[in-house]
């Protein structure tokens, strides 16, 4: 989407409210590592174009939940649907059977993910990182992929860093490349797992700016973050997780002004 379009959309208050087409529907998701129950029945629905920020203390299961959404973690029970497709599993006679690797890989194409530790491919340049999957997964012609890749780099403000290796980039720059890399797959959903937690304070802003722009352009986003300013400004909905459950959710104005749950109040008072 061009900047002009984004501006117009801004002026009319973002994309028109989509007819309730859901991008994500998670139902009663449960997961444990041995005896440790990390997710104790998490349900969440996310509409197209919605930005959901998940907050909560460490160990509350928010990262694990987001990783389940593209099947980087297995679940023990429940259902996760993205774009209407069951993720990671086939349902056979009411039971979940893990899907074949090839099918899971196919499902992941439409789900972009940004990691706390960036995870750029160390042996590839910034541009190389971005075009890798379009060329080898989507089999887009190299020239086209490179052209799109350069546009994406420009979009995250790194047009001049195409040939830089990750080790030559700052954390903030690496994370912006990582976002561009995920966008290169033209995902319908973007997951952010604490995208700014590993960054020095002065670099957090540049990454949040990119994410803000993305949200404004109508991307469906689920963001695990401690950046309350970002949540307040960008989120359509803030979700509070604690002890493997969603204990409260709501639009940011209401959520931050008068949280109803005691543990939310305690958490917010500590962090704000």
């Amino acid at each position: 989407m061009s900047g002009a379009t984004a501006k117009i959309l801004d002026s009319i208050g973002g994309l028109p409210e989509p007819s309730n087409d859901e991008v994500v529907r998670a139902v009663d998701v449960r997961k444990s590592f041995g005896d440790l129950h990390v997710l104790k029945g998490v349900s969440l629905a996310v509409r197209r174009g919605e930005v959901v920020v998940i907050i909560g203390p460490s160990g509350s299961g928010k990262t694990t939940f987001v990783r389940c959404l593209n099947h980087l973690e297995k679940i023990q029970s429940g259902r996760i649907l993205v774009n209407g497709h069951l993720i990671g599993y086939r349902e056979v006679g009411g039971r979940l059977i893990e899907d074949r690797g090839r099918n899971i890989a196919r499902q992941r194409r439409e789900i972009g993910m940004v990691f706390q530790r960036f995870n750029l491919f160390h042996h590839k340049t910034a541009l190389g990182n971005i075009v890798e999957a379009p060329i080898h997964v989507l089999r887009i012609p190299e020239a086209t992929a490179i052209k799109t890749g350069r546009e994406l780099l420009a979009r995250v403000g790194l047009a001049d860093k195409a040939d830089a290796y990750p080790s030559q980039l700052s954390g903030g720059q690496q994370q912006r490349v990582a976002i561009a890399r995920a966008l290169a797959m033209k995902p319908r959903l973007m997951l952010f797992d604490e995208p700014t937690s590993a960054l020095d304070p002065e670099m957090i802003g540049e990454v949040l700016d990119v994410m803000r722009k993305l949200a404004r352009e109508g991307m469906t986003m689920i963001v695990v973050s401690h950046e309350m300013g970002f949540a307040r400004e960008v989120a359509d909905r803030v979700v509070m997780m604690d002890d493997g459950q969603i204990i409260e959710e709501g639009p940011p104005e209401q959520f931050f002004a008068k949280p109803s749950h005691k543990r939310t109040q305690a958490f917010l008072s500590k962090i704000l």
């Binding site: 593209n70 890989a105 992941r108 990691f115 995870n119 999957a133 995920a182 797959m185």
Partner: peptide, 15 residues
């Protein structure tokens, strides 16, 4: 993390 990033981009095991 390299593997996870690659998987999240839709790469199969072989890729």
């Amino acid at each position: 993390g390299q593997t996870e990033a690659a998987k999240s981009l839709g790469m199969t095991y072989g890729l």
